[in-house]
Design a protein around this nucleic acid. Structure first.
Length: 137
DNA sequence: GCCAACGTTGGC
DNA sequence: GCCAACGTTGGC
């Protein structure tokens, strides 16, 4: 059973659409300690929601980890990790932050609780709820 | 544009 | 090693 995650990104910097165009990318720029700790737990085949901050504030698509985290080759710091991901399916309908907040079972989702965390674990239940919202009308 | 929440830094 | 000050992030 793959684990589930959520990556935040500023769409003007790197969007899900860009990832779809690239097919895969190296997810870098993670500096936050807790985010790095989460990143370390990512395994090949894990599924990831891509969430756009800024004007959109919504999960827009899914990506898949191509492997575990490894130190950023372009940096000189072994603590700065990156992970390879490939584009998956876009959600039929983006799941907005407002919808997540409105859902009683997503109340203690890290996305709501700690808005500044850029990489977080998503429980199976949270994943299923979000997927349900994203793929139904 | 503002501000709350959180992380990091640096002085002690 | 503590904690105040500062910077950054992201939602509003």
């Amino acid at each position: 059973m793959p684990n589930h995650w959520l990556f935040k990104t500023e769409p003007s910097v790197y969007s899900f659409q860009q990832l779809q165009k690239d097919k895969k990318t190296v997810w870098d720029g993670v500096a936050n300690n807790l985010a790095l700790k989460n990143l370390k737990d990512i395994k090949k085949g894990d599924l990831v929601f891509i969430y756009h901050t800024g004007d959109e504030k919504a999960a827009v698509g899914v990506a898949k980890a191509l492997g575990g985290a490894y130190p950023d080759p372009s940096k000189n710091d072994p603590k700065l990790l990156v992970v390879d991901v490939e584009a998956g399916k876009p959600l039929a309908k983006p799941v907005t932050l407002a919808e997540v907040k409105a859902h009683p079972k997503l109340k203690n989702f890290d996305l709501v609780r700690n808005s500044r965390l850029s990489i977080m674990k998503v429980t199976d239940e949270q994943w299923e709820i979000m997927e349900g919202m994203g793929n139904s009308k």
